[in-house]
């Protein structure tokens, strides 16, 4: 008490003399210097670099001497059938990932909560976290092995008389393989938040429910699920910002020219035309389109999360 009181006096005194407070703040400025420099160069630097989308950028001429072309690249972009196709693929894959990535973890969290043997619950959790921590290179290596035409998955399906399926070679099923493998990778990790939400549900509600004769199923439906509802809404809202994030590294690892029709997404398209074909400005224009949509969607998602769930970033 005494300390706080003294400090309050101190603070009022400090406010009067601006320079004393500034001297007290100096170390805080110093701490921010490394972070600010790096963010300025790499984040704000590349935001500045967006001007190349309005130029015919040549690396040797730089941002200041490359020829300005206005909106030419954007006009070209919206007419390009490739672009519309890529945009649709991105949206379709991302939406399915968002839906499946919400549904499965919620289900697993609810069911894990019903497991009474603690050691088994912990074992399941450790194991299903594993794929989350592995890179798409490793998982790609594993998936190529499992899903090949004579791989173990096709061998297993063969037992039931299913013809071998080219999981990673057939355009019509490739997007679903992407969604399934992504959902599988993240399912364990994404249960963490939902499990935490379940433990916050008042246990006396379950006891009361059991006394009233509600079975397990009814308790899940009427007590656990409504208790998790705010978190489900929050996670769903925040995932709006990922509406054009269809999983760059995953697709780049798993796709191939035969799969461009259904599997090519904005990020891989930008990578190919920009860094492989060297059409820097056009690729930057396509990238800017994505960044603008993301800006709107991320802002919207944070706004909605704030309104619906009183969520704030900091």
């Amino acid at each position: 008490m005494a300390v706080t009181k003294l400090n309050q006096q101190n603070n009022t005194r400090l406010k009067g003399i601006g320079s004393t407070q500034f001297r007290r703040e100096i170390p805080l400025y110093f701490m921010l210097v490394p972070g600010i420099i790096l963010v300025l160069i790499f984040s704000y630097g590349s935001m500045f670099g967006i001007i190349m989308a309005f130029q015919n950028f040549v690396p040797s001429s730089g941002f200041f001497d490359s020829k300005w072309v206005g909106l030419e690249h954007f006009k070209f972009m919206v007419q390009l059938p490739d672009f519309r196709n890529v945009l649709w693929n991105t949206f379709f894959i991302a939406m399915m990932k968002i839906a499946a990535g919400l549904l499965l973890p919620v289900t697993i969290a609810i069911l894990l909560n019903e497991v009474m043997k603690q050691w088994y619950k912990r074992f399941i959790q450790v194991v299903i976290y594993a794929p989350y921590f592995l890179s798409w290179v490793i998982l790609g290596g594993i998936l190529f092995q499992l899903l090949s035409i004579d791989g173990i998955v096709n061998q297993f399906l063969g037992l039931f008389g299913v013809e071998p399926i080219l999981f990673l070679g057939k355009p019509s099923i490739f997007p679903y393989v992407l969604v399934a493998s992504d959902t599988w990778k993240n399912m364990g990790f994404n249960t963490i938040v939902f499990l935490a939400a379940i433990t916050n549900v008042d246990p006396t509600l379950h006891e009361a429910g059991a006394i009233d004769g509600a079975n397990r199923w009814k308790q899940i439906w009427n007590i656990t699920l409504p208790g998790m509802f705010p978190i489900i809404i929050l996670v769903a809202t925040l995932s709006l910002g990922d509406i054009l994030n269809a999983g760059f590294e995953q697709v780049l690892m798993l796709y191939g020219p035969a799969l461009y029709k259904t599997g090519d997404i904005i990020d891989t398209y930008v990578y190919r035309i920009g860094l492989i074909n060297g059409q820097y400005s056009f690729a930057a224009a396509v990238g800017l389109f994505k960044s603008m949509v993301s800006l709107v969607m991320v802002s919207l998602s944070y706004y909605l999360a704030y309104r619906l769930a009183n969520y704030r970033i900091f």
């Binding site: 972070g35 790499f42 500045f48 670099g49 190349m52 860094l275 820097y280 960044s291």
Partner: peptide, 27 residues
Amino acid sequence: FRPRSIFAWFFVFTIFFSGGLIPGYII
């Protein structure tokens, strides 16, 4: 720390918007 909010937004803005792959590579 009086300029705290300005600095906070300076960092947080990078969550909302990015230059994208190609400008980043060029930088």
